[in-house]
Structures are given as C-alpha cells and as structure tokens.
Nucleic acid binder design. Structure first.
Length: 576
RNA sequence: CGGGGUGUGGCGCAGUCUGGUAGCGCGCUACGUUCGGGACGUAGAAGUCGGAGGUUCGAAUCCUCUCACCCCGACCA
C-alpha cells in the first residue's frame, strides 16, 4: 500500500474533548471520527486494526469449535417480554417502533434471539453441546458515553452462547472458552489478566472477566502477590480478621461533637485512630427485612462494596442510599451522627467492624458521638457480613499471600447463565429418556472495538501508538528519503516494496512528497511496528536503516538481507 | 436526571462583557525555494458565527425559546 492511495488523516493538534491517551491517539492517528455522542466512524486505518482483532477472534472461536452466525441487530419486543428483560432493562435499551407501531429494540446483547433460534432448531440432546457466536454491532444507550470507542454507545462485539444438557458440559465449554480467550488476548499482544467476577443477578457458579492491564482502566482488580488469585474488587472477598477482638479497655462515654460530620473530622478533632471509627450507611431495606431502611456498618477507613451490600437479603435491590430527609425521619438524627447504639433499624456490620474494641460512632443524636463502644458489652453484636472493598495488603482469599490492587480495562467476560433464559423461554431438548430437559447456557463476550482502544491505552508513548505486530494496520513502514530527487533511492525503494509485497509483508510505502520529519512523525503516530528508511547515505554502503517502533537506535541492514531480516522479525512475534 | 460549561471555515481557538457587518494558528489549493525529525515565501479557496424567534437603523455580540456536544455528580455519614 502507498500513502498516496491511502488517506492518513493525522492531526497535529489534539482534539479538545479527548481525555485519555487512546481516545486522543485514535483521533490524531486518524483511526476514528466522531459522528455524535458515543457514535464513531472507523476510517480505513482504524478499520484495518479492528479487522485484525476480529480475525484473531474468529480464528480462535472457530478453532474452539464454535459456529458463526449473524443475528439481526433489531429485535422484536416480544422476545424481551418473554424473558422479562423488556421491563428490567432500563433506558440503556434503545427502544424503537416500526411503521406499524410494533415495538423493537436495537440489541444490546442477544440472549433472547439465540434462545429463540435454538429452541426452534434443536430438538435432541444429541445436538448438544453447541456454541454459536457472532461478531456484530451492539447498541447500549450509556448514561455517559466517554473515552471514544472505549465506552461508546454503538460498538462491535463478539458474543457467543453455548447450550448444554447439564452443568458438567457447560463447565467444559466454559473452561474451553477461558482458554480460548487467553489465546485471543495473547495473540493480540496484550498484557491481560483473567479475574473472578461478580456474576450479578444472573447467578451461576462462575464468571470471569478478562482485563487489559492499564492504569487508566475503569475497573479495579485485585491480585495476590503469592498466587494466581485475581478478582474484580466487586467480587474479592475481604476475609475475616484472624486475631481475636481485644477486650474492652475504655468506658462508654457520650461526647459533644458539634462540628464533627465526617470521619476525617472525628479523627482530626479527637486524635482518634481511623481504624476505631465506624461509618453507618443507611440504605433502603428489602421486603424481607421488614424495615424501610437498613444500616450497613464499615470501618471509617474502608469503603462499602456495592455489590456485596446489594447481595444482603435485608437490602433492597437495586441498592439505594437513603436521602437525608429519610434518615432524619427514620432515626431523628442526620448523616454524620449515626451509629449502631440505640439505632431503630436492622443493622449489618462488616467483618472488620465486628473485630474492633473501644470504637467510636455517632450517637443518633445530632452533634453527639459515643466513644469507647464495645460489642457485647454496650450493645449486642449484629449480623456480620463481608461488606467492604478489599484494600491493598489484605490477605488473599485463597490464603496465599496478600492482595495488590491494579486497574484494568474489561475486554472480555465469560459466564455461566444456567437456565435463566432457557427456562423463561422454554428452550428444551429431549434427553436420552425421551423427556424434555431445559438446556443450560453459557455466554461469552469480547468487546472487539474496545480491544483496539485498550491496546493503545496499554501501548503508546509520547510520539503515538505502539501497535503489537499482530494487530498493527501495517507491519512495515517504508520511507524513502528524497525519492523525487534521487533515482537510486526511487529504484531501491520500488524494488524493496515489490519484494516485501511478494514476501507477504504488509508494507506501507510513504510516497508522499513531504519532508522526512513529517514521515517519521506520522509513522510513529500511527504506530507501525517496523520502519525501513532508504536514503542516499545508506545506499552508498548498500544498506538501509531499520528501526523498531519501540526502539531509539537505527540498525544498518544490507539491502539483500532486509527481507530475511524482516521475515525473522515478523515471525518472532507471531508465535503464541 | 441534577449541577457546570461550550457551540465562530476541515481542526484548535480569539472576538461576545462595552452591538457597527468576522479574525488568528494548523490544515487545504497553486507556484517557487527547500527537504534525514512535523520547512519557508508569495498568491488563493473556504464560515447563513448550532437553530428559530425577538429588540435595534444595524446582532457572532443583547433578550426568549430550542438543539447539540463536553465535564462533574453513583460513598456521604
């Protein structure tokens, strides 16, 4: 390919509304252009990258025995009503009507559609297990689309759905998909981790997310320093402290704290250790709790884990924090003065809260706190649960090592759906006894367009993108110096271009009439992994210059050795 | 949804407070000089100032409505 025939729509200036590196670079390198909030056009250069990711995904899914299908993007409301999600899904579901006023949605996911297909097409257990996948455009009307294609509304996704007669078969395919995803992201040249994830309301025994490691990632993941334990912080268990709770050593006292509304003020004003403070959070109670509100207690230096909180039977789902007026009405004191003693609400405390002695908490009277509180002396021990986010240094839940915290970009998610959709939509096959059996399902997604952004987020420098070879839009940039003036350079470059082409190398020849610095800057911005410069200087010695995108020094290569040299470089990183 | 902000050639911005008929940089076109790390000169093309209505002799600028986009808010006890 020649740049004269391939628009490099690069920008020298940084677009105003791009906040993170990948978004900026995707715009500057001319990979994408925004049409509207969360909607992007992929330019030729960007599409080449996305197609490469797609191809890797497709090859590995095929290799794992999955079968490609293509389902409609627009889906009838009836199927969503059947699964119950027409009501459950909020405004994120883009609902549309056709000319007959029939309701449809633009699919954010395809469980209903594949289940509808499979219940009609499959009749026998002999046809199971089976795994269908597609690579297709999804639409989710995100509250706040941002970061370019990282969190866009319209995006390209690979989604797969497997169907099984029993859990053992599902587990087998699940494991296969786990391995397949690992191969996919390895082949994409990314530093990633598979982490245990919350399977949410869907249930099921197992769920893993695949994260590309990057400091700008929106997800917090925790890793053990001594084992392969890895989990999303939403899921990571904060294990109970092993040491016994200390015995009470202080007397209970009620203290005037008129200017103490926050934990920080309590710590500062009373020189009180933050580990001996309690945060009392009021959330809406479930029908089961029998109370309008429920109190959740975590240590002052800890954060409530929303997923864990919502999972408590006493807590209403979705989780809702009480408003200030509601707190006054229910307790008679405002936030900032709440605590477990004389609290007229059901109470659940975090494991670490159960373990402190001589602690402080609000007195449920405005402007007053208790100090020297002790469980089982001053008040009974409430129900104990794991409610908090783990923090750096906490013991790993698998008992091996301590936890470290990192950030990641979720690019893949696999989970076991069980019978949620197959039961609701009556998708069954006849088993070996001729009896109908509801199929059990697995579901496996990869955000293809997000992988492109995540790769940039992980691999870039101040000059631009540094593509992993396997997903680079071109493998080699071929840059002639003063081609217009020098017949030798022109001849040499044309010969090399042809030779590379014949060797199957994806080469981009920069035949624009621009100054060298311009070419260098553009090729670095768009991140071509290998660069070959042909100039009079080198030709005098029968040489050309080579430099890898991540390198800072040139190597001189003899012209007749260039193709083998490049082939060597290209195959070195092909191996997985 | 609540709060804040921005809409002016393809991109980045000034001009708006204090009304007088639109400007800068990048990019683009042509020619010339240059050219191994985003060159320079000369000459050009390109904007109903987001939209609608109003005030005024006159509106990018003031008023009303509206649309779009961006940022913040989902831990606070």
């Amino acid at each position: 390919m020649r740049t004269s025939q391939f628009p490099l729509q690069t920008l020298k200036e940084t677009p105003a509304d791009a906040e993170i590196a990948s978004h900026r670079l995707m715009l500057r390198a001319g990979l994408i252009r925004k049409l509207a909030a969360g909607l992007y056009t992929w330019l030729p250069l960007g599409l080449r990258v996305m197609r490469k990711v797609e191809r890797i995904v497709r090859e590995e899914m095929d290799r794992a025995g999955a079968l490609e299908v293509l389902m409609p993007a627009v889906q009838p409301a009836e199927l969503w009503q059947e699964s119950g999600r027409w009501e459950q899904y909020g405004p994120e579901l883009l609902r549309i009507k056709d000319r007959h006023q029939r309701e449809f949605c633009f699919g954010p996911t395809h469980e209903e559609i594949i289940t509808e297909l499979v219940r009609n097409e499959l009749q026998s257990y002999r046809q199971l297990p089976i795994n269908f996948y597609q690579i297709q455009t999804k639409f989710r009307d995100e509250i706040r689309p941002r970061f370019g294609v990282m969190r866009a509304r319209e995006f390209l996704m690979k989604d797969a759905y497997s169907f099984h007669l029993d859990q053992a078969s599902l587990q087998e395919t699940y494991n296969l998909m786990h391995a397949t995803y690992s191969r996919i992201f390895s082949r994409c040249g990314l530093d990633f981790r598979a982490v245990q994830a919350d399977s949410g309301a869907i249930g099921g025994s197992s769920s893993h997310e695949f994260h590309v490691m990057a400091d700008s990632g929106e997800d917090v993941i925790v890793l053990s320093d001594r084992s392969d334990y890895a989990a999303n912080i939403e899921k990571a268990e904060a294990v109970a402290p092993v040491e016994e709770r200390s015995l009470p050593s202080e007397a209970l006292r009620l203290v005037d704290t008129p200017d103490t509304k926050t934990i920080q003020q309590l710590v500062d004003q009373f020189n009180h250790p933050v580990e001996k403070t309690i945060k009392t959070l009021i959330v809406a109670g479930s029908a089961e709790s029998g109370a309008p509100f429920v109190a959740l207690l975590v240590r002052g230096d800890h954060e409530l884990n929303l997923v864990k909180a919502e999972a408590q039977p006493e807590v209403a789902a979705p989780l809702r924090f009480a408003l200030e007026e509601e707190i006054y009405q229910a307790i008679g004191a405002g936030p900032g003065s709440l605590g477990p003693l004389h609290l007229p609400l059901p109470c659940i405390i975090d494991r670490s809260v159960a373990n402190i002695a001589d602690f402080s908490a609000g007195a449920n009277i405005d402007g007053k706190h208790y100090f020297g509180l002790n469980w089982e002396r001053d008040l009974p021990l409430p129900r104990i649960a794991d409610l908090r986010n783990v923090v750096e240094g906490d013991p790993s839940p698998d008992g091996k090592g301590n936890l470290t915290i990192a950030r990641g970009i979720e690019v893949g998610h696999i989970f076991q759906l069980g019978e949620k959709y197959s039961a609701a939509m009556q998708a069954s096959v006849l088993d070996m006894n001729g009896q109908p059996r509801t199929m059990t399902m697995g579901c496996y997604g990869i955000g293809v367009s997000r992988v492109v952004a995540a790769a940039i987020e992980q691999k870039h420098d101040e000059k631009g993108i540094i593509w992993p070879l396997s997903i680079a839009p071109f493998q080699v940039a071929l840059l002639p110096m003063k081609m217009d003036k020098s017949h030798r350079v022109r001849e040499a470059v044309e010969k090399l271009h042809t030779a590379m082409h014949e060797a199957g190398i994806e080469v981009l020849l920069d035949d624009r009439d621009v100054r060298p610095g311009f070419m260098f800057a553009d090729m670095e911005l768009i991140g071509i992994p290998h660069r070959v410069v042909v100039g009079e200087r080198g030709l005098d010695q029968g040489q050309v210059e080579y430099r890898g995108r991540g390198e800072s020094e040139n190597s001189m290569i003899r012209i007749d050795q260039l193709i083998p040299f490049l082939m060597d470089r290209l195959s070195a990183s092909e191996a997985v």
